[in-house]
């Protein structure tokens, strides 16, 4: 296998992508998440496109719905538990699970083990412990599981990256997403001021504390506009939906786009 990079990019022969798992094609189970499924199908399509372009197979367990994050984080722990069970039932036995949402992965990693422990369900706890190491946020799957930076993408736009809190702090994505972006052909990546500042979404926080959330959002949109970027990207559509909401309300013309959609870009 050494030295023989798989021809991952059929449209551009000079691009050869190599990684530690080179030549190993995986069966990827996609957990799209409830809100991406309903509100951001383009993100899901882009994930499929990128993974298939890299030679992997994508499966979609049809019974999947929601990870339970909204319930759990708002204080409805009891309601979150059946959703955990559902997730495990849908994805047990998966070779790997890819999730294009950093906060949903954070929910699973940070809280699933504790939830099963509190429930006193040893069998479920073991299943969760076995499953979790196979669950990856999308950018993390590319950079950490596959060891890739260049996925052969083309995206001729000026873009700024917003580091979603859960990706940054809970998952420790580091500069992985930026490394993926820097390898995109045609892109002009501009850094945003206050990269580590929360956009103010926070799930139900945005409606329970609407004024504070709005003020945080105003700081974030100002920072986005100051970059002069055409689009703001992130690993989490929930932040992007929030930021997009204000950018659109203010008629700024600046778009938001999930990282997967940039990485799916082709000439």
């Amino acid at each position: 296998m050494n030295g023989v990079g798989a021809p991952l990019c059929f449209f551009c022969s000079r691009v050869t992508v190599r990684g530690p798992d080179e030549g190993l094609f995986l069966r990827v189970s996609l957990f799209i998440t409830c809100y991406n499924d309903t509100l951001f199908p383009e993100t899901g399509k882009a994930v499929v496109r990128v993974l298939e372009r890299l030679g992997h197979t994508v499966e979609f367990p049809a019974g999947q719905t929601c990870c339970g994050q909204m319930h759990y984080n708002t204080g409805y722990q009891a309601e979150g538990m059946p959703l955990l069970e559902r997730f495990v039932a849908q994805f047990r036995g998966a070779e790997c699970v890819v999730v294009p949402s950093s906060s949903c992965v954070a929910m699973m990693r940070d809280h699933y083990p504790k939830m099963t422990e509190h429930a006193g369900n040893a069998v479920l706890a073991r299943e969760v412990a076995e499953l979790l190491p196979k669950v990856f946020e999308f950018s993390e799957f590319l950079t950490k599981r596959l060891g890739l930076e260049d996925v052969g993408a083309f995206y001729p736009h000026k873009v700024t990256y917003h580091a979603s809190c859960h990706g940054l702090r809970n998952l420790g994505l580091g500069d992985g997403p930026q490394r993926l972006l820097r390898a995109v052909r045609g892109i002009e990546l501009v850094e945003i001021a206050g990269l580590e500042q929360c956009c103010g979404f926070g799930g139900t926080f945005a409606v329970k504390n609407a004024e504070v959330s709005s003020a945080m959002l105003a700081d974030k949109t100002r920072a986005v506009l100051n970059t002069g970027a055409e689009a703001c990207t992130a690993c989490d559509n929930s932040c992007l939906m929030h930021i997009e909401g204000a950018l659109h309300r203010q008629r700024t013309g600046v778009r938001t786009v999930h990282l997967a959609e940039i990485l799916a870009g082709e000439p």
Binding site: I32, N36, D37, T38, L39, F40, P41, E42, T43, G44, K45, V48, F60, A62, A206, V207, K208, A210, S213, S214, L217, A218, M241, H242, E244, G245, A246, H248, R249
Partner: peptide, 20 residues
Amino acid sequence: GWTQVRDLREMPKQTFREWF
């Protein structure tokens, strides 16, 4: 509280699962 300062995109005509 959401729409005080934000718009919300309408739901797409097709969900991801329908597309898949």
